[in-house]
């Protein structure tokens, strides 16, 4: 085989190197990320925990509604409850902790980074995979609301404006928290450290929301900044169906910043 190959071609020659559009490589990576989430037990555990807590919190809210009337849509009540944050803040680090840390620990990171794939492509693919998985875990919530609406014949359970706003808010907020998680995961080879680091960042941002609302008249700059980045206030608006462009810009720019930092961390192996 070799002899004939050499004779036919006369000499060793360079074979044409394969080339493919960056988008296809990106999609292959995203598919792998999603597949990886469901190939492990972690993925199913996350989905199960989110489902359980969502179900429990809605039961609780309905129980409270039985005690007295409330004008707010159920979705808004849910997002303003402590349950929502109890689900959101720990779940995002668990989703992203695998992204880079697990690959570094098993060595597949080296195998990945020696293929003709760009650093940015890898970061974006890992982020997209995490975001899609995150949204997937929240999908059952829609089904739960639909069932409630069907049973109670109460349109407030799946009010389109509030539902759209809530899911948009969820996507934006999830993006920011997941991009923080990607950064944490890129910084270390330990999944536990990655999860703790991103949980701390998320909780740090959330704690700011606990400050009492500041008013422009207060003149307290810190207070107004805290008010501006308050995730609880943002989510309140989104759940009412109010899409404030300031909130969107805040989350999109935050996500871009953390993804940029992640890319720099991934690139940093070239500086050492």
């Amino acid at each position: 085989m070799a002899a004939s190959w050499c004779v036919v071609h006369g000499a060793w020659r360079t074979r044409p190197a394969p080339r493919r559009s960056p988008l296809n490589v990106y999609l292959a990576l995203v598919r792998r990320e999603l597949g990886g989430a469901f190939n492990s037990l972690t993925g199913f555990v996350v989905v199960a925990v989110v489902l359980l807590l969502t179900g429990y919190s809605l039961t609780d809210i309905i129980g409270k509604l039985n005690g007295g009337a409330d004008d707010r849509p159920v979705v808004e009540m849910f997002y303003q409850s402590a349950y929502f944050w109890l689900i959101l803040l720990p779940v995002t680090p668990v989703i992203t902790m695998r992204s880079f840390a697990a690959e570094k620990a098993t060595g597949t990171y080296e195998a990945l980074m020696t293929t003709p794939v760009g650093d940015l492509q890898v970061v974006l693919a890992k982020f997209t995979g995490a975001l899609l998985f995150f949204l997937l875990t929240w999908l059952p919530l829609l089904a739960v609301l639909a069932v409630l609406r069907q049973v109670t014949k109460e349109p407030a359970f799946l009010e389109p404006r509030a539902t759209f706003g809530a899911f948009l808010g969820l996507t934006l907020m999830g993006s920011l928290l997941l991009s923080m998680g990607c950064l944490a995961s890129a910084l270390t080879r330990s999944q536990i450290i990655a999860a703790m680091l991103s949980f701390l960042m998320g909780v740090g941002l959330w704690v700011v929301s606990l400050r009492p609302e500041a008013t422009a008249a207060d003149g307290d700059v810190l207070g107004r900044v805290a008010d501006h980045v308050s995730m609880m206030r943002h989510m309140g608006d989104f759940a009412r169906g109010v899409v404030d462009s300031r909130h969107v810009v805040f989350y999109v720019s935050g996500t871009v910043l953390f993804l940029f930092l992640t890319t720099r961390v991934v690139e940093s192996r070239k500086w050492k």
Binding site: A17, P18, R19, R20, N24, V25, A28, L29, R31, R32, G35, G36, N39, S40, T106, G107, T108, Y109, E110, A111, L112, T114, T115, P116, V117
Partner: peptide, 26 residues
Amino acid sequence: PENNPIHLDMRVREFLKFRARLKGLG
């Protein structure tokens, strides 16, 4: 690489196809 790091959770064919895509094959 050393210690042959591969994705243990994937199936053989699926893994090779994924790697082929990453390496630019259609």
